[in-house]
Design a protein around this nucleic acid. Structure first.
Lengths: 212, 212, 212, 212
DNA sequence: TATGAATGAGTCTTCATTCAT
DNA sequence: CATGAATGAAGACTCATTCAT
């Protein structure tokens, strides 16, 4: 919004360094903080303290706080997306693929809880070009869900008439998935595979179906 | 109803004034801003500008920004809770009551979109006593869902063995419901009754059941 | 300083009401607060709460916070001054009058601790005409001390050569007297008469003299 | 000397930086302002303007306005205390040591008028741990006076019966000393050595003794 | 007399960011 | 690569005071 020009100028070299162990610690620490307190609540000083960097030193790795957020989302979300696209390409019937989509999503969540939470709840903290870029990843991820669910529901692709129910069902699914961040706690709750099974049963057959 | 007394007792300690048309405009304007930008992004100056108050003038109505947030959540959530408790007491079988729970929730949402969004996503912006108070409302609302879903699933109340699946299913439902804030737009999407119907079908019979 | 014009205009009717029980409670409560926390630390809200007045209601009795301070100092200090002037006129030799000066000062202090503390430590919180007026009372009070001490020291009045030592000795005395505010506590310490005796002995004969 | 370690331990928790020419200018400028207008009257903007810092820049050197006040008091008072403790250890009879106590106090005052005034009149502007820390320095300084005065008065250390008069006499002395801030002006009044002589004569032999 | 409601000016403090080294 | 030092802008909140009633 505020600096489209700067954003597009910067995009090519948004940051100079994109790997290294220290860099990983930086993104990881920042993600942990932002997942816990939210992006705007998290100060650069917090991140510096958490990661052992100096305040100024961090700016070698990204251009701004927003850029830091962007890098976290970009890395995490594109990894998840790639993983799911590849995995879904391996075939299976619609129900099976739906089960795998859910399972992999939750498995990824357990491995990258902080990062994924940030991806899910901090999109709006991005603006301009950065927002667009992440938004487009999200749209692609959503499309994956829509395709499978349409197939499960027996809706012909492109059927305008049935588009809304499919879209809604997909949104229901992502709602369930994204709400997991709010309550799931590794030690206390069942494992992600078990949870994935329950959720897939729920989605496919509902409360009554999955019981009988 | 039965907790209006408790509610007013609780709020009286926190703020002096509790009614009046100007006061309504204040809470409403603040909720709108906070729903759009988030609590911590919303400045008191924003609220003042939006509501036509002076910065200092608003502090006549609440003691702090956090107190303002608390008042919004307290009013909204206790109204929703009372409404659902009363409505559910009117009977019907489990599936029917589940449908009504969803329908009333979405109907309430459409009437108080900003306020409910703030209730759902800004609990963690509260702390101490205020957090506890809202958290307890939320727990009661969740308990309503658990009771109905256990009945739909045919689980005996108190069954330890089946507690987790029931809890999970309830969380799935609230995940769907709460995610609605993220995508639903009155003009563009179908009406709340229709959406409620789709969601209830989805919850009861799943993707496959609700089709066949 | 800031509004000499307004000050002189206002002085004649600095306040409309100068008596009444409520008015006494107001000045007394304010003095207590200001003695404990200092003038600038004491808010008009504090005074309202302490005295049971409404914020706006107090402004019937004085024009401004500074005027409130002025009234406290004016009343208290002129009462003390009148009392001492009258008492000293009753004669006695120099040492005797010095003892009485100290004794009456401490007796007055015990009766009006808060007010006198405010007189002593908050002169600089006044400005313009109000400052001048209290300063002149203070000067007259100081002159009382100077006269007696010169006599005790056997210095001829008007002796330029001996003026500094007399002035210094008087300042030493008032230093002792004014520091009493900082440590004296009615319940814990000896009575004011006893303290006055010790102080007078100290002033007249010093540490060594008062022992032998 | 022996408590330098303790002092630096204590301050390190409170502020990061403890030396440097700029830092000195900061404390000095702040002390000057606070001596003139009082702590609560002195705004951080005043200090910034006086010292040439930016408002935010000052916060690099202390955590809060109160911490700034604390640092001024801590530095000044522990320097004075160390100086007196060391000097008194050099011996001499009681009267001689009393003269030296007064003389060094006034000499120190002339060198650090602003800082010492702040130490004397703004202890109550501190709170919690900071208050305790300075209060304990003050107590030690007071104990120095009590010991000498007891000796001058010929009171056995530990004599419960004579404790109050000794304590009072010491408070008289500190009253005189602390009131100096209120009237002494370097150019106008006599030098500190002369004043110290007069005060010591006064304390030892009183108004009558010092004349005869 | 008395007050509920309101406000302009100002307070301390924090934040993301920069730059010389 | 890294950081100590510094800052402009903005944030929540408070204060003495006023005015219609």
């Amino acid at each position: 919004m505020k600096d489209d020009a700067a954003a597009s100028r910067g995009e090519a070299e948004v940051s100079r360094v994109r790997s290294g162990e220290k860099y990983e610690r930086l993104l990881g620490g920042a993600a942990a903080l932002m997942a816990r307190q939210g992006y705007s609540q998290t100060t650069m000083r917090d991140v510096a303290r958490e990661t052992g960097f100096s305040l100024a030193g961090m700016y070698y790795y990204f251009k701004s706080k927003e850029d830091l957020l962007f890098q976290i989302q970009q890395r995490t979300f594109s990894e998840l997306l790639a993983l799911q696209e590849e995995q879904l390409a391996r075939g299976g019937d619609a129900a099976e693929r739906l089960r795998r989509l859910i399972d992999r999503h939750l498995a990824f969540y357990v491995r990258h809880a902080d990062e994924l939470k940030v991806c899910t709840y901090e999109l709006d903290s991005l603006s301009g070009e950065k927002y667009q870029q992440i938004e487009s990843l999200r749209r692609r991820y959503f499309a994956l869900g829509v395709a499978i669910i349409a197939e499960v529901m027996g809706v012909r692709p492109g059927s305008v008439h049935e588009a809304a129910p499919v879209r809604h069902a997909t949104l229901f699914l992502f709602g369930m998935l994204n709400w997991v961040f709010m309550w799931y706690r590794p030690g206390r709750d069942c494992g992600p595979e078990q949870l994935a099974r329950e959720m897939a049963d729920f989605v496919l057959d509902g409360l009554r179906g999955s019981r009988s």
